[in-house]
């Protein structure tokens, strides 16, 4: 049915395999100080059963990407100014927000960073988990409640029979995130977007939540996008990674390839900055400088002021994502000097 709905030829290349195909996405935010290009030419695909990790630091645009897909960009400041988001052959950017939201309610689900503020404090969790069944599937109260209980058990809430009537504040942070996940998977979405799902949690809980997401995916075959700043957390479950910097994807490929043989100096800098990568007590090798201001991006490659490889070419010409020589066809980096970066390692 995907084929039938495709109108333009821009997406045919990936339509066959991918569930979500984002092409050359441009998002702008209008701020008091000017227009910020939050996303600039972001393209990626996610296939059913696959997990894509979108990694980046503050202001890199990783969260904006998720919001753009879900039509959750804050209005009127943020808007998609170019590119396409094709979900199952349907270009979401060409659809009214109302339609996208409707689709999101059933087929695309999202898990947010802060489970406490995403749950309504005055309703029992059972009621909240049951709501999609009642509203979207028109189930009766009793039946929906039963479904909710099933889900809470599935996501590992201990003693779910009694706890289903509790209120959000009576659960720990990890349990609240489990409840959020239960709500997200309630209608068996085909795509789950998790935006920093474990950032607010303790490490031991973090691990359990990531394992839960991986289990659920294996069970349902849904596609998953994990948005995170933590390179370690996603490494356990993601097959592919996209590294973002200043609104662009600067490197993408199978996660092992990207981590083991980074072809972009930023990816390499990130990996080198992680304390466990350096000798104990020794000096870390951080990336110099600070992330750029989106309102005043440097000319050429946005990373050039912090880059040890930068030349005049980097200061004038924006590098396109390309496959570095000697790397696999699915590994791409947006750097003029990827070969040098790889050779230097």
């Amino acid at each position: 049915m995907a084929e039938m709905r495709i109108g333009s030829d821009a997406v045919t290349r990936s339509a066959a395999a991918s569930l979500l195909s984002v092409r050359d996405l441009q998002v702008e935010f209008t701020t008091a100080a000017g227009v910020a290009r939050a996303l600039d030419g972001v393209s990626f695909d996610v296939s059913p059963g696959e997990t894509l990790a979108i990694l980046g630091e503050s202001g890199s645009g990783k969260s904006v990407t998720g919001q753009a897909v879900m039509a959750l960009l804050p209005k009127p400041a943020g808007s998609i100014v170019g590119g396409s988001i094709v979900y199952d052959g349907l270009d979401l950017t060409a659809r009214p927000v109302k339609d996208v939201r409707k689709l999101c309610a059933t087929e695309i689900a999202m898990v947010f960073q802060d489970p406490l503020s995403s749950l309504n404090p005055v309703f029992q969790v059972g009621y909240q988990v049951a709501e999609p069944f009642r509203r979207r599937l028109g189930m009766g109260k009793r039946e929906a409640w039963g479904k909710a209980l099933e889900l809470l058990k599935r996501v590992g809430i201990p003693d779910a029979e009694t706890r289903i009537g509790d209120y959000p504040h009576q659960f720990s942070g990890g349990q609240r995130q489990r409840i959020m996940i239960a709500m997200a998977i309630a209608l068996e979405p085909r795509l789950l977007i998790a935006d920093e799902p474990t950032t607010a949690l303790d490490v031991t809980v973090q691990k359990q939540i990531i394992a839960l997401l991986a289990d659920l995916q294996a069970e349902t075959g849904m596609a998953m996008i994990l948005i995170s700043h933590d390179l370690g957390v996603v490494a356990q479950v993601a097959e592919r990674a996209a590294i973002m910097y200043a609104g662009r994807i600067v490197e993408t490929g199978p996660i092992r390839e990207v981590y083991d043989r980074p072809a972009h100096p930023y990816t390499r800098g990130l990996l080198d900055s992680i304390p466990s990568a350096a000798e104990i007590g020794g000096r870390l090798t951080p990336i110099v400088g600070s992330p750029p201001n989106l309102l005043a991006l440097p000319s050429g490659c946005s990373f050039n002021p912090r880059c040890p490889f930068a030349t005049d070419r980097c200061r004038t010409k924006v590098p396109a994502l390309r496959q570095p020589a000697s790397r696999g066809s699915d590994h791409a980096a947006g750097c003029h000097y990827s070969e040098e970066v790889l050779a230097d390692a």
């Binding site: 630091e57 800098g269 080198d272 900055s273 870390l284 951080p286 992330p291």
Partner: peptide, 14 residues
């Protein structure tokens, strides 16, 4: 702090 900046601050502390 973001990881790249965190590394800078850790070095500074050392």
């Amino acid at each position: 702090l973001d990881v790249s900046v965190q590394a800078q601050v850790l070095n500074l502390l050392q």
